[in-house]
Amino acid sequence: MRLDKYLKNSRIIKRRTVAKEACEGGRVSINGKVAKPSTEVALGDIIEIQFGDKTLKAEITNVAEHVTKEGSKEMFTIIE
């Protein structure tokens, strides 16, 4: 699954266009490398997102095309 679509489906970022802009701005990295919106994500990947002066670090635990609001919380585990 594409990174921008994963961020939207997991509800880490609410809109795919905002997720795409964050990736293009260099604020999202996967396993320590800056990622493009089209980067494929896999189970066990570590995502880091810069939100202003805060950083969200999460591990991917599930990749699903269609999820409910409750199910989206099971798609990642927050590390820091």
Rank of each mutant, 00 (worst) to 15 (best):
E59V: 14
V28E: 05
G44S: 00
I49Y: 01
E24I: 02
V63F: 11
V18W: 07
C23E: 07
L3R: 01
L7G: 06
K57G: 00
V41I: 02
E24G: 05
E74D: 13
S38T: 10
F51P: 07
R16I: 02
L7T: 02
I79F: 11
G25L: 02
T39N: 15
A64W: 12
Y6A: 13
D4Q: 01
I49N: 00
V63H: 11
A19G: 05
E59S: 12
K5D: 10
I79N: 12
S72P: 11
A19Y: 10
E70A: 13
T55Q: 13
V18A: 14
D53I: 01
M75D: 07
I13D: 05
S10C: 13
G44D: 11
V34Y: 08
V67F: 10
T55A: 04
I78V: 12
F76N: 07
E48D: 05
K33E: 13
V34R: 14
A64Y: 14
I46M: 10
E74W: 12
T55V: 10
A22V: 00
I78C: 04
T39C: 04
K69P: 10
S10E: 02
V18R: 04
G25P: 00
R27M: 08
K73A: 13
C23V: 08
K33D: 13
A42L: 00
V41K: 02
K57D: 08
I60C: 11
Q50P: 00
R15N: 08
R27Q: 09
F76M: 06
E70D: 14
T77I: 15
E21N: 09
I78L: 02
N9R: 15
D4C: 03
L3Y: 00
I46R: 07
R27P: 04
V63Q: 10
N62D: 12
K14I: 10
